[in-house]
Design a protein around this nucleic acid. Structure first.
Lengths: 157, 157
DNA sequence: CACAACTTAGTTGTGCACAACTAGATGACA
DNA sequence: TGTCATCTAGTTGTGCACAACTAAGTTGTG
């Protein structure tokens, strides 16, 4: 797993690369979310944080980071913007002054109703049947795990 | 195609969403490229531009933008950095002073040799058999097209 | 207890992605 | 021919992603 298959051709053609397809698809989906989220005044990463909080309120920055694979360098300013927008509160925990607990405001909780109209649009836009959608999700998860494992074991040759 | 399937549940659970899987996979792949490209002193988007130029040298900014779906707001500073690194030259075309032609330097052409060692690593890291890889690429392309079409026809409801 | 190691958020700096805009060149056509 | 629309690249400003670092709190160990 740590040694590349040098028997493969390894084409440098742009269109041959799954990675470019992945990159393009990801940007296309983000662009769709940009349009869908515009009435909610959220960016896609902000929406992801809200999803995590709607699923479970009162999470530490660290927990949100683990859920989304984002570090404090990304989350800290993003959470400040969400707080400024009145959707969350950030408060130091008294039992451990290092950690900050993120809590939804009433407004933040209420936004969920509007957000519920979004997934159907995304589902329709992706134009995949249920079976393929499930398979894709599985492949994406495996791909992420596999690629991360490879990267972590990679040493410049 | 322009109307969402409201019969679907539209779960707001983070892990249910293919989009999040896509976003995660794309970031994982980019992180792998970051490690692989570090010896070449290229970022992933810079590498994509180089791929496009290795495939066909002497392209206008506009053509590169079409190939990668990037606008001049992204490309202009990126190309300046590639020029500063000595990999490309940017020159106004004499027959149409609006457009800028991007040309590989000798150094830029030579870098291709080093770059050829990268795709095998990526292929190994993705851990997909040839058939599945081809299928994924096809699904990604369809997904991108479908999502972009939906977005372009979308009007805030 | 002292203090070193570790943990949690936050800050700074770089580069990408994109919207909105500008400058200058070109083309269309009344 | 004038001038108006269009085209091409670039600029500015915002936000994300990440590396590298800092500050402050907590834990472990002699």
């Amino acid at each position: 797993m740590t040694s590349p298959d040098t028997g493969e051709t390894g084409s440098l053609l742009l269109d041959d690369q799954l990675c470019f397809g992945l990159y393009s698809a990801s940007r296309a989906v983000t662009a769709l979310y940009r349009a869908l989220l515009e009435p909610l005044d959220l960016t896609y990463p902000q929406y992801l944080v809200m999803l995590a909080l709607w699923q479970q309120d009162e999470q530490q920055v660290k927990e949100l980071g683990a859920a989304l694979s984002l570090d404090s360098g990304t989350l800290s300013p993003l959470l400040k913007r969400l707080e400024k927008a009145g959707l969350i509160k950030r408060e130091r925990q008294s039992d451990d002054e290092r950690s900050v607990r993120i809590r939804l405001t009433e407004e933040g909780t209420a936004l969920r109703t509007k957000a519920e109209r979004i997934p159907p649009h995304v589902g329709a836009a992706m134009n995949l049947d249920k079976a393929e959608l499930g398979r894709m999700r599985a492949v994406m998860d495996e791909l992420t795990a596999s690629v991360n494992a490879y990267r972590e074991s990679y040493r410049p040759s």
